[in-house]
Amino acid sequence: MAAILLGVLGLVLAGPGPLWVDRWRFLFRVPRAAVVLWQAGAVAALVSVVGAGLVVAVPALGRWQEVDTLPVGELGRYAVVLLFTAVVVLRLIWSLVAVARNTGVRRRRHRDAVDLLARPTGALTSPGLRVLAEQLPVAYCLPALRGSRVVLSEGTLALLGPQELRAVVEHESAHVRARHDLVLDTFHALHRAFPIAVRSEIPALQCRLLVEMLADDAARRVTGPLPLARALVTLAGAPNPDWALGVAGAGVVDRVSRLADEPRPHRSLAAAVYLLAGGLVALPLLVLAVPVLAPGHAG
């Protein structure tokens, strides 16, 4: 019974759950809590699946001697559940390692190239700031444990006013300080741990947008909303070379329109979202704990 409950819970959390939460636009008001909620959802899905596997496997191992006498259907069910669990766990480990290594290598290569091509700038003083001598406007950061970079181009400097530039640099510095890339990487790895059929892109995409909103909030605290909104609109609307077309700019409109709202703490909403996140993680743990705490009722 517990195995079925956990299995269903895992599938709901991996598939239809995100579709539903995706529509909760009020989460944009509490981006930090929202990131935690998405992470909790992913962790809960993982605990459910692994838990379901354990619930099936532990008694099955105890009855290893009578394996010949078990009906074929039951054996098959054990095998499928165990296989699924093993796949999820192994894929998680593998994808955590792969994502970390892949990102690290590519980021280091990119940083080395930027360091050789760009000049350390005097106009804007910020450690790790580099300006590429290119007319196409770009603005991004390369987060790292040591030697993070915030990269702009001459085109960006030409397009934006001083306050707008400050907003951009503050936004990127917030990413670097809070290591938002780690949130996204871990999330991405966790997401990849689920087989393609039952996983959803939504949590990873939502978290991307939410960390942008967190960095926007940091920039807004320094420059106010208007320079940030103008910088967003100017850079998002900048012409793009052909090969970069078709890149999803999803969420820019949401990011700009939430800057029109008064920045308020939304304490009770945040508390409710945190509570929900805690509940999500607790749910599969409770299902697992019930047979242990009340062994008499376990099947």
Partner: peptide, 25 residues
């Protein structure tokens, strides 16, 4: 190469090497 990565020309590659301020719309 740098500009290509900077403008996310490699869109199907989800392990982002960098975090862009905003993508084009």
């Amino acid at each position: 190469d740098v500009m290509h990565t900077a403008l996310e020309g490699n869109a199907d590659d989800r392990t982002a090497a960098l975090v862009a301020f905003v993508s084009r719309v």
